[in-house]
Amino acid sequence: MLAEALTLSAVLFAIGVVGVLTRRNAIIVFMCVELMLNAVNLSFVALSRLYGATGQVFVIFVMTVAAAEAAVGLAIIIAIFRHKQTVSLENINVLRG
């Protein structure tokens, strides 16, 4: 059971990483980051069957932080939408050098 869960978690994490690196829409990139965090949560829950409650406590922390991160992240995406009328990362390129 543990091996399957950890494999699934690794696959989900990899999908998240590939998504962040290839997608060009800020919202989708953010969703992929959330996928990575949830893949990690799955690992923690699976491992806590082996080691006790620490992993589950960690998952609660991660979910709380992810919720706070979503609030801040969406606010930032709205702020940039007000300036650019787009959330495509290709068009967000004032800063370069």
């Binding site: 994490f13 990139v29 980051v33 990575m36 990690v40 992240g73 940039i80 007000r82 800063l95």
Partner: peptide
């Protein structure tokens, strides 16, 4: 520029947090 900096920092910072967390999970494992 400020908004763009915030977006870039946020996306890459959250991405890095993912790696950090997965590292912690594996060390815990």
């Amino acid at each position: 520029r400020s908004a763009e900096g915030a977006l870039k920092y946020f996306l890459l910072g959250a991405f890095a947090t993912g790696f950090l967390l997965y590292g912690i999970a594996l060390i815990y494992g």
